[in-house]
Structure formats: C-alpha cells, structure tokens
C-alpha cells in the first residue's frame, strides 16, 4: 500500500513537471514590442511590432561584405567571440561546431560570429581561424567590423560585451542568439552548455516549420 502511495506521489510530481500539453510548437518572440494601431479596410486594427535587428554592414573571413540583406530569408544564430580568447570561446565554438554540422547543407541557415577584438582579429586572422576550425563554405561567417559597430549591434542581440578590463581581458557572455527570417530574436542559449546547444538545434528545427518562416523568402 505504502509503495502505491509513493508511486502515485512520484507520478504526480513527474506530470507536474511536464510542459503543458496546450502549448503549440512555436518559439517565443523576444525583445521589446510595441502595439501600433493601423487602419485596414477602414477599420482600426491593433498590431504588434517586435524589435528586429537593424541594418548593418560587416566583412566576413573571405573579405566579402555582409549586410543585413545577406541574411534575408535566412534563419541564423549569432554570437560574439575573439580568436585569442583563452576562456569560454573554445567551448562555445566546440558546441557551435555541432550546430554547423547539423545545418551546413541548408542554404537558408547561417551562423555569424562577430569578433569583439577587431584590432587583432583581422580578416586574414579570421580566415586562418576558420580553416583551423575546419569550417568552409558560407554557412558560418566570422565577421569583422569596427569596435563601435560591433558593440552597438551586440545590444540589439541583448548580448553584453565590454572593453578590456584592467587585467587585459575582454568580458563577454557566451550566448548564442537565434534570429528568424524577419530578424526577430527567438531564443538565447548559453553557448558554453552542451545541453542548451542541443536545445538550440532542436529549436532551429521547430522554427523552420513555423508557417511564417516557411512563407518568408
């Protein structure tokens, strides 16, 4: 009898932890949002405007110019790193390599890694890093830009990067940001945690099946 009660309690706890069956298979939209009132067919309609990644212009490891237009119609993941980073970057990119391998055949998917140390990480340095990482083609771009532009765009990804601290180290967090074809933020993942990166891969697959992602060109 006692065993049965124990079992029931365990089941009750377990089912309480399961995600609600009512939720549909879509990812949340992150960032600030504003209601706007539009007039459609003479009627007032309230619509929601989500914050999106603004226009930008950077250069990738092949010295090609990459702008926001280069990512039109593509789902992408963004992160911030530098090639001489001794702490979290190797872990982040060891994990990012799994994302790369999973989606490298998909031309509607990209990874962009912004260097936060543009002084050292010049285009040839980024190319060498890419070669050593074993990444080729156009799936994974390593982006170079001015410090100001890079730090400015980091804010749009809700990522914090700072100048070197007194010890000469850059402070940055290891987040991977998932962005949809409308350039809205759809998820943030701790890039140093393999479990979260596994979730990112699953979420990308989910995102790809959403109707407004399938429709977007």
């Amino acid at each position: 009898m006692k065993n049965i009660i124990c079992a029931l309690i365990v089941i009750a706890f377990y089912s309480a932890c399961k995600p609600g069956s009512g939720t549909t298979n879509t990812l949340p939209i992150l960032g600030n949002r504003e209601p706007v009132i539009k007039t459609v067919d003479g009627k007032q309609v309230t619509d929601t405007v989500y914050s999106t990644i603004p226009t930008f212009k950077f250069v990738n490891q092949y010295a090609d110019t990459i702008t926001n237009k280069s990512l039109d119609g593509k789902i992408y993941v963004a992160d911030f790193f530098f090639t001489t980073c001794p702490s979290i970057c190797p872990v982040m990119h060891r994990n990012m390599l799994n994302v790369y391998k999973e989606f490298k055949a998909d031309d509607n998917f990209r990874i962009i890694s912004h260097t936060i140390d543009p002084k050292y990480d010049t285009v040839p340095v980024l190319k060498k890093y890419a070669d050593k990482m074993g990444i080729s083609g156009n799936t994974w771009w390593l982006l170079h830009g001015t410090k100001e532009e890079t730090y400015q765009i980091a804010k749009n990804y809700l990522v914090s990067v700072q100048e070197k601290n007194p010890q000469g180290e850059y402070i940055h967090d290891g987040y991977f940001i998932l962005v949809d074809k409308q350039k809205r933020l759809r998820g943030t993942y701790d890039g140093t945690d393999p479990a979260q990166v596994t979730k990112l891969i699953a979420d990308i697959k989910t995102l790809k099946t959403e109707p407004d992602q399938v429709a977007a060109k």
């Binding site: 001794p86 190797p90 990119h93 050593k132 990482m133």
Partner: peptide, 15 residues
C-alpha cells in the same frame, strides 16, 4: 578543460 575538452580531445586544428 575549456580548451582541451572533457576527453582531452582538443579542438579541431586549433587546440
């Protein structure tokens, strides 16, 4: 471990 990995596997041709 951050660089050399949990199993000492390193990282591609970098580490």
């Amino acid at each position: 471990q951050n660089c050399h990995g949990e199993k000492g596997e390193g990282l591609q041709a970098l580490i």
